[in-house]
Design a binder for these strands. Structure first.
Length: 450
DNA sequence: TCTGGGGTCCTAAACCTC
DNA sequence: TCTGGAGGTTTAGGACCC
């Protein structure tokens, strides 16, 4: 059983803790709860996307709700507990989910709205401690070891946060409390939905050992298979073998990592958001139907390049990327990637697209039917530090200027208010699934057709 | 049966330089 | 001049996470 399965609601076997898995009364005094050596909280919003939709759509209250791709190849991004009762879980194809529960209400994901709610929740979390590490829109780690003297025990802090999130945002969340991040994350799973679970330091091993190997961080279906083949079914089994054997079986890094986790050791500190640096950005698109037309694929590569370049220029302090990676997935689901490192970093769609095009031609997939194309840029440097080659050609077009004008137009009039001519024409090609339309967007030309 | 999108990290081979 | 090892970088792919 994997951790994902645990999260889908399969009950955990194992021990009872001092506090059990149900919420404690929120009026517990700060002094009444010992901390048991636990300074790490994992806060996990319950069925986050679906709950936000329910909050804002009166017709969805009390109904099974699914959020995700509504196209023929969409998958479930979030399902509320009423939908989960039908066996629906995240990452399930939406078509299958609809078959399991035809009366479920299905909404496309509105990431902008979820980001707003997530930011509001984060403000609440940061009112307790500055050491908050967001993991995704719906979960975060908190290090409350510094706040305990001021606010009280970690269970009291968890209940305080839960009641504020419920009162101010109308949403429920679950909180795991433990001495480290790995155990806190598992404890939060155990607390779901709408609960708190604390694993005292002295009981970490007893909590972990009965769990299946799939509950270990870094063990997905492939590694799980290998461990089970070796007769390792539970975390206790993994803890009983030597780190050297694990290293031999799954590689040095993962072997050491699993050996430590299985013994309840996780040295990773809770990193406040500002210290997390971005490594790269990617954008990809699955076509509604497989595509073999090189022109359609090229237009999609341009669209993805535009998106990435704009993000590079406009997010944070502005970045440029040195390496461009093309990803294509054939109709049979085999995936290949090809990458190229540029002589100097770029934040221009024109250059990213040109590189992606070279990689596409070199990959020799021009006659293959593709279901997905994607581009990733990495090796990011802050734009002001990016070395740019000077040109002696005074007549060379100022592409950076052109793209900055497009950024400004997008900011004022909506996404893709200005775009390359080749993206402005009606094409009739299959619409990429999950793509939002931009009703206000009109095609305008730029100095030279791309 | 059908398998999204945006990320991170690890491994291994190939290649280059010393 | 050739060979080999060490070590860094690039490239490709796999696995995992949310």
């Amino acid at each position: 059983m994997s951790r994902r399965q645990l999260e889908r609601g399969t009950p955990l076997r194992g021990m009872a803790t001092d506090h059990g898995s149900r919420p404690l009364p929120s009026d517990l005094g700060a002094e009444s709860v010992p901390d048991h050596g636990c300074g790490v909280l994992h806060v996990d919003m319950d069925a986050f996307f679906a709950s936000v939709e329910q909050l804002e759509r009166p017709e969805a209250r009390g109904q099974p709700v699914l959020v995700g791709g509504t196209g023929p190849r969409g998958v479930v991004a979030s399902a509320n507990y009423a939908a989960r009762a039908y066996g629906i879980h995240s990452a399930m194809p939406m078509s299958q989910a609809r078959r399991l529960c035809p009366r479920a209400l299905v909404y496309p994901a509105d990431h902008e709205r979820y980001s707003q709610v997530s930011a509001a929740v984060r403000v609440i979390l940061e009112s307790v401690t500055p050491v908050v590490e967001p993991v995704s829109l719906d979960e975060a780690f908190l290090d409350v070891s510094g706040a305990r003297a001021r606010l009280g025990g970690p269970v009291w802090i968890a209940e305080h946060l839960r009641s504020r999130i419920r009162a101010e945002q109308g949403l429920t969340c679950s909180v795991g409390i433990a001495p480290n991040k790995f155990v806190a994350k598992l404890a939060a799973t155990h607390a779901k939905p709408d609960g708190v679970y604390l694993v005292p330091e002295a009981q970490v091993q007893a909590f972990l050992h009965p769990l299946p190997v799939g509950a270990l961080w870094g063990v997905g279906p492939k590694v799980e298979q290998r461990l089970v083949r070796l007769g390792l079914h539970t975390i206790a089994d993994v803890a009983a073998v030597s780190p050297a054997s694990l290293r031999r079986e799954v590689g040095p890094a993962l072997g050491d990592h699993l050996a430590a986790l299985a013994r309840g050791r996780d040295e990773r500190a809770v990193q406040p958001a500002s210290s997390a640096e971005e490594r790269g950005l990617s954008a990809e698109c699955t076509f509604a139907r497989d595509v073999a037309d090189a022109a359609v694929i090229d237009r999609e590569l341009l669209r993805l390049s535009e998106r990435l370049a704009r993000r590079l220029r406009t997010e944070g302090q502005g970045h440029a990327a040195r390496t461009v990676t093309l990803k294509v997935r054939r109709a049979d689901f085999t995936t290949i990637t090809r990458s190229r490192t540029l002589p100097e970093p770029t934040d221009l769609a024109r250059e990213i697209h040109a590189t992606a095009r070279i990689l596409y031609e070199a990959a020799e997939v021009s006659r293959a039917r593709l279901r997905l194309v994607g581009i990733r840029v990495e090796g990011l440097v802050v734009s002001t530090q990016a070395h740019r080659q000077l040109t002696l050609d005074a007549t060379a077009p100022d592409w950076r200027g052109v793209e900055q004008v497009m950024d400004e137009a997008s900011r004022r009039f909506g996404d893709f208010a200005l775009r390359p001519a080749s993206l402005a024409q009606p094409t009739g090609d299959p619409a990429p699934s999950g793509q939002r339309s931009h009703p206000g967007a009109r095609g305008h030309d730029v100095p030279e057709r791309w």
